[in-house]
């Protein structure tokens, strides 16, 4: 599924290297957690995978089912099944949530040469998915994420993921800013999407999220590389001992 080899990336503006030879293999159907101290490059990794232009990849490769992702623009990657749940979902005034949801779904379907979804079909799909995530249709009438609470924004990200049915979902600190109830709802949303042909990369600072979304593998990231990998017990160990031994403060 996802294969990252010796990935080096730097910030385009100032040339600062953030990812320094990162290797990661995520087989189909698995959930991999990436944990690590602040500044270790976790969010950068998610942006580089999704195709943000502020970063320049200087070395290495990223493939999804053999497809080179690095040669694709962000929208093309999305159409190939890459989904990034943002740590800070943006508020976009003037762009209606429903308009946006429909545009995303149809853009991806067009790119894959599937037919566009009809409006009634789309409404039904959104309503069902939103209900499961405790998102009211009233909320979806607003501009994208405008006036949404932190938890609502995160749930809206999961709603998009559920609609788009990606191959690879990257969750960037989806647990941040969530209270325990919201965390449960979001985790259930994610767990429901677990499938043999879908992989997850779950980036988190805290072990708490992993109580709800059980990872197959836990990686520790430090200074732009994966420095240790293990089973779910590794997360518990990190929770207990902190990241001190990885050379950076938590």
């Amino acid at each position: 599924m996802l294969s990252i080899k010796n990935l080096h990336a730097r910030i385009e503006d100032n040339g600062q290297e953030i990812l320094k030879g990162l290797d990661l293999e995520v087989p189909a159907g698995q959930v991999h957690a990436i944990m690590g101290p602040n500044g270790s490059g976790k969010s950068t990794l998610s942006y580089v995978l999704a195709g943000k232009e502020d970063y320049e990849v200087t070395e290495g490769s990223v493939t999804l089912d053999g497809q080179d992702l690095l040669e694709l623009e962000a929208d093309e990657r999305a159409a190939k099944g890459v989904f990034l749940a943002f740590q800070y979902p943006l508020e976009i005034p003037g762009v209606g949530t429903m308009t946006f949801l429909k545009a995303t779904l149809n853009a991806q379907r067009r790119a894959r040469e599937e037919g566009e979804v009809s409006t009634p079909e789309f409404m039904k799909l959104v309503k069902k998915t939103a209900d499961e995530l405790g998102i009211s249709m009233e909320m979806l009438k607003r501009s994208l994420n405008v006036g949404f609470s932190g938890g609502e924004k995160k749930r809206n990200e999961i709603l998009q993921m559920a609609l788009l049915q990606p191959k690879l979902a990257i969750l960037d600190e989806t647990d941040s800013g969530l209270d325990i109830d919201a965390l449960k709802i979001v985790s259930e949303g994610v767990n429901k999407l677990r499938a043999p042909d879908r992989s997850f990369v779950v980036i988190t600072h805290y072990q708490r999220l992993l109580n709800y979304i059980k990872p197959d593998v836990v990686h520790v990231m430090s200074k732009g590389r994966i420095v240790r990998s293990g089973g779910p017990e590794l997360a518990l160990e990190l929770e207990k001992n902190g990241y001190a031994e990885y050379g950076e403060a938590a």
């Binding site: 232009e53 502020d54 962000a74 929208d75 999305a78 943006l90 976009i92 946006f100 995303t104 790119a111």
Partner: peptide
Amino acid sequence: EEEYMFYLMARGIPR
């Protein structure tokens, strides 16, 4: 806003 553009494009909407 480049950030807005990225958000929309990351969802598959062409530039």
